[in-house]
Amino acid sequence: MNAFTALLKRDLLLAYRNRGELANPMLFFIIVVSLFPLAVSPDPSILEGMAAGVIWVAALLSTLLSIERIFRSDFDDGTLEQILLCPQPLPILMLAKVSAHWLVTGLPLIIVTPLLALLLHLPEGTLGILMLTLLLGTPVLSLVGAIGVALTVGLRRGGMLLTLLILPLYTPVLIFGANAVQAATMGLDVTGQIYLMSGLLVLSLTLAPLAIGSALRVSVS
């Protein structure tokens, strides 16, 4: 537990010292979302229908962009080797890395979501559901994405490959997340979707750290 907090604190400290970069995933998120009214139509009745989907796709792309850095600098400066060699359970350390990443990139997305909901005329009363699904879904995106990064971190040009590896795996989160909001718009019950997303979160919280650790052991060799 000591090691978990130490690593989490270090990553948060590093993020704080590079706070100029901190806003980038969030800005990306906002910009992508604001492109849609320009490309499709500023008509509120059209925007309303696609608001949830657009916000979810943008959150997914933003996570994809930022997740690549989760192990990059550790790999380059050799601290990743030190982490792999230390006498601590690796999955716990991986959970610390992913938690730090989510706190720095996932949480800000949720915080700016009300603003984007406003821009896209998200129907009244569904903002809460949207934020709840993002809260349950974005950690899953970080966890699953980190597996892909762990597999490709040793490659010089892993960027496109990473996209190919993890985007198909993101579809369940996208489907349940966007759908819950759409169902809420129509006044339907969304407990089912919320439970399913919680299930995905629990599943990935337990299994992904194991996979990330094993993948890193393979990549750093």
């Binding site: 270090r10 400290l13 590093l14 010292r17 590079n18 600098s73 380059d76 400066d77 050799g78 601290t79 080797e81 030190q82």
Partner: peptide, 10 residues
């Protein structure tokens, strides 16, 4: 190893 295993920003 070849890399020092130090964080430049720490």
């Amino acid at each position: 190893g070849h890399h020092d295993g130090l964080k430049g920003d720490c």
